[in-house]
Design a protein around this nucleic acid. Sequence first.
DNA 1: CCGGCGTGTAACAATTCCGTCACGTGACTG
DNA 2: CAGTCACGTGACGGAATTGTTACACGCCGG
Lengths: 228, 228
Amino acid sequence: MNSIILVVEDEPAIQELVAVNLEHAGHQVWRAQSAEDADAMVREALPDLVILDWMLPGTSGLAYARRLRGAERTRRIPIIMLTARAEERDKVEGLEGGADDYLTKPFSPKELLARIKAVLRRRAPERTDDAVEISGLRLDPATRRVVGNGREITLGPTEFRLLHFFMTHPERVHSRTQLLDRVWGDHVFVEERTVDVHIRRLRQALEASGHDRLVETVRSSGYRMRGV
Amino acid sequence: MNSIILVVEDEPAIQELVAVNLEHAGHQVWRAQSAEDADAMVREALPDLVILDWMLPGTSGLAYARRLRGAERTRRIPIIMLTARAEERDKVEGLEGGADDYLTKPFSPKELLARIKAVLRRRAPERTDDAVEISGLRLDPATRRVVGNGREITLGPTEFRLLHFFMTHPERVHSRTQLLDRVWGDHVFVEERTVDVHIRRLRQALEASGHDRLVETVRSSGYRMRGV
DNA sequence: CCGGCGTGTAACAATTCCGTCACGTGACTG
DNA sequence: CAGTCACGTGACGGAATTGTTACACGCCGG
């Protein structure tokens, strides 16, 4: 939890309703009244999720969703669409929304939060604060603790995120570029080889409990975490 | 997935529409406004697929498709043609089977992606990241793992690609030249006999699970992988 | 203002991988 | 049955990739 959520909604009452609920749940909220507003914010930094009203003055929510999905930088941001009436839902869905989920007004705060959680879990499990465990190595985002076979393991911030990403996406090979994108994040410009160094630091820390072998090198492709 | 797709389309709006959708699907897009532009790009490196407007200023799409199909180097690149009206479709189709598929404007993004996937799977299944399995030997591109009867098999990069190609094109003899083209890639200059050496290395690795017998030598023609 | 801490980079070391060659062996031909 | 021809195989030098270390720099907290 504690994600950055961009709420794009022109109607102040609904904007407020959504924002308050999200903030109450511990999220950080950015507010935009239009797609243009939203775009300005997104250019600055990437939110973890976007809640987008279907009807907006100027660029429609649908069009904006498509735009987000089109650009490389914003492609993988989860989108939840707010639609006005139940009837329109199918229409939008059929039309080809880039959205991950839809919410029909009126909706309960509980439903809103549940869908956010579900979408995040599906598209970006590393943004969730569920604890993860792989063969005796346990990482808990909520407490920011890593424990290997009972022994506590200390990690720097980057190594922690790196391990978290690996553990939420095990068994898959990740190229250095992918890791930079998803662990280091947006708007960073660092050498690919920097990844190697942090892999080294991570392995070194994991040696304490013998879990360093979980981080595998896949020559010419990238790195992979052993699953199970 | 994640292929390089060359889009040849003179109308900016459609060019953009297609490109955005392809990028969203994870492909890398090269854009060309004319057959001449496209040709310059293709000379540099080969795309995995070409989307070609039928009507183009200068050399027509149809003519360019024929040219691509004529040259040895570009012969096997899949081509999808964009045609203007439904009526013309039959005409074009009848006229020349240079294309692998046709798409009539207007088309939905979904249809576009579906056809691309279908064409790629048909003409270049090794570019897909679906796992393949043949008689107890399983190769998974996403995890970059090869498992033979439960035992994990370690392969170098080239052997991995070679095996992947074989497994996606079983029961068919591939000459050394073909293998060099499709496994080593375009624009490489190595001895043909190098293939033999990698075949040897592949077989050696596969011995661990007894799958080395799947790779058969076809004297004076090339190599073949046993299917099923 | 000092001293850690965390980071990114560059440089060097250690592997791993690749392509080529040389030689051996088996198969096919006439 | 000898002579090619095609392929198998082992070795080797060099290239490419990754591991590792050292260092400089910026950012706090004291």
